[in-house]
Each structure stands twice: as structure tokens, then as C-alpha cells.
């Protein structure tokens, strides 16, 4: 299965703006397990997630970490918004 991961703000320093995560031999994965995979691959991400608040969106919607992802889903990792002035 493939999951598109989009990063914003400080998370782009570690992940770039977008990456496709290929997970062979799986048809689904929980959001929690996907984050575990990412933190194993990117050690700096683990440090950052422990340091700052963050938001996870799947296809634009806020979900909890037990959410089950399917191939083609888009996961976004974002810090708290900083729009306005």
C-alpha cells in the first residue's frame, strides 16, 4: 500500500513537503503505526513530536491515532496554525 504524507511548517525541515510511503504486504495500517514507521525512519521527527503540539489530518479531516488508513490516503502533519498577521 501507498500513503501520501504531506508536511507543513517545521515538519518540512525533516520530511520535505511531500513523500509517498510504500508499505509492502499491507492493505491497511493504523495512523499510530504509520507515525511509528516515520519516526523510526526519521529520528529527528520523533524528537520534534515530543517537543511541540501537532495535528494529524487524514484526507483533510482530524482523526484519532487509531484511525485505519487505506492505500491512497493522504496524511498531513501540521503544527498549530500561524495565519493572520
Amino acid at each position: 500500500m501507498n500513503i501520501r504524507v504531506k508536511a507543513f511548517s517545521v515538519f518540512t525541515d525533516i520530511l520535505g513537503k511531500e513523500l509517498i510511503l510504500e508499505i509492502p504486504g499491507r492493505e491497511t495500517i493504523s495512523l499510530e503505526d504509520l507515525i511509528d514507521l516515520l519516526t523510526k525512519k526519521y529520528s529527528e521527527l520523533s524528537k520534534l513530536l515530543n517537543k511541540i503540539e501537532y495535528i494529524l489530518l487524514v484526507n483533510g479531516k482530524r482523526v484519532d491515532k487509531k484511525y485505519i488508513l487505506h492505500s491512497g490516503d493522504e496524511v498531513a502533519i501540521l503544527p498549530p496554525a500561524s495565519g493572520g498577521l
Binding site: F8, S9, L78, P79, P80, A81, S82, G83, G84
Partner: peptide, 14 residues
């Protein structure tokens, strides 16, 4: 509206 845009809008700045 301004307060909510600042906190909820998925807009980021460097």
C-alpha cells in the same frame, strides 16, 4: 473571525 483564522486555518508562516 480574526482570532479563529489565526488558530484554525491551516496556514503557516516562516
Amino acid at each position: 473571525i480574526l482570532e479563529r483564522v489565526k488558530h484554525e486555518s491551516y496556514i503557516y508562516k516562516l
